[in-house]
């Protein structure tokens, strides 16, 4: 049994100009001790999907799924109270916007200690020790002094690390982290990632990690799901997907990563991009959502329904020509 199971998740958002079908039929599973990275186009529904798992969607959004289960129990119809109990100790959530998860009027020390007091034990001294210890482990120097600061007195990366420490302090069994290291320099990022991995190995924590950094995916992911326009277009073992992506979108995405080696002076290179724009998700999309931008598009792509099926070493690929594509790419 998977720790987290999601089948046919759909999320609709009511906007001024109609209903937006932001997440369209997503299936995902995460096992205990496993890291699933989610990557994809900005605005493709990653955050909404993550929020829906713990009942944190904004009021304008509604979701439905044939199954949404944590540790085998359906969590779709939990009461607010039950969801609150689940968050924290069951599922730790790290928001993309750190200020959503932090209270601006309380010192971070108080907020961190509250997590301990609520989920771990009633001893205030122990709570304080735990707070200092977790802040130190996410690379924050002078943690004891930092406890007295308010969120607005912290840099972007310090706030993210406080959020991460806060999620870890409750000892959750599943962590959902939405771009948690975007404000961290690479040395601290490496430290935070290896902390997450070692806690994961010790306690069998499941980790859902949303990121735009494909280097981070290569470093931490067991499996990766690539999203485009509200759908998962490719899933599989991270090494397989990164080394031999079968979906044209994944392929194109990887080719947009800038190299860390500077080009010789005076030489300016244009970065590869994916021409065109994501479709608007009002109403139904005929055929493949990526068709208007796909380098390999053929007539069938804009009319036929595209099934999700295995391709090569990849678990699932949503492309009509996934199997043949290899020769195509290497031609």
């Amino acid at each position: 049994m998977a720790l987290l199971e999601i089948s046919d998740l759909n999320i609709e958002v009511v906007t001024g100009s109609g209903v937006l079908h932001a997440v369209r039929g997503i299936d995902l599973a995460v096992n205990a001790g496993e890291t699933l990275c989610i990557v994809g186009e900005s605005g493709c529904g990653k955050s909404l999907m993550a929020l829906s798992i713990t009942g944190l969607l904004p009021p304008v959004a509604r979701c439905s799924a044939t199954r949404l289960a944590f540790e085998g129990h359906d969590i779709q119809h939990l009461s607010r109270r039950e969801l609150e109990d689940l968050r924290g100790k069951g599922i730790g959530f790290i928001f993309q916007d750190p200020m959503t998860g932090l209270n601006p009027t309380m010192t971070i020390g108080r907020q961190l200690m509250e997590v301990h007091l609520r989920h771990v034990g009633r001893d205030r001294e122990a709570a304080k020790t735990a707070a200092v210890s977790f802040l130190t482990r996410v690379g924050i120097a002078n943690a004891a002094t930092r406890l007295r600061q308010y969120p607005h007195e912290l840099s972007g990366g310090l706030r993210q690390r406080v959020m991460i420490a806060m999620a870890l302090m409750a000892h959750p069994r599943l962590i959902i982290a939405d771009e948690p290291t975007t404000a961290l320099d690479v040395t601290i990022q490496a430290q935070v990632l290896s902390l997450l991995k070692s806690l994961q190995r010790e306690h069998g924590i499941g980790l859902v990690f949303i990121t735009h950094d494909l280097g981070v995916v290569a470093a931490i992911a067991d499996r990766v799901a690539v999203m485009y326009a509200g759908e998962v277009v490719e899933t599989g073992d991270a090494r397989d997907v990164l080394a031999d992506p079968r979906h044209p979108y994944t392929r194109a995405l990887i080719s947009c990563v800038p190299s860390t080696t500077p080009s010789p002076a005076g030489v300016s290179v244009e970065l590869g991009t994916i021409p065109g724009r994501v479709p608007l998700l009002h109403g139904r999309i005929e055929g493949c959502a990526f068709a208007p931008r796909c380098a390999l598009v053929r007539d069938r792509c804009s009319t036929e329904t595209v099934p999700a099926r295995p391709a090569g070493a990849v678990e699932i690929c949503r492309c009509l020509f996934a199997i043949e594509k290899r020769e195509f790419f290497h031609a």
Binding site: Q96, G156, H212, C256, S268, L271
Partner: peptide
């Protein structure tokens, strides 16, 4: 200040090209 850290790499490339 971190103008592209919230962007996927294809949109990042588009923005960097625009800046260039």
């Amino acid at each position: 200040d971190e103008p592209t850290s919230a962007l996927d790499v294809s949109v990042q490339a588009q923005i960097l090209n625009l800046l260039q």
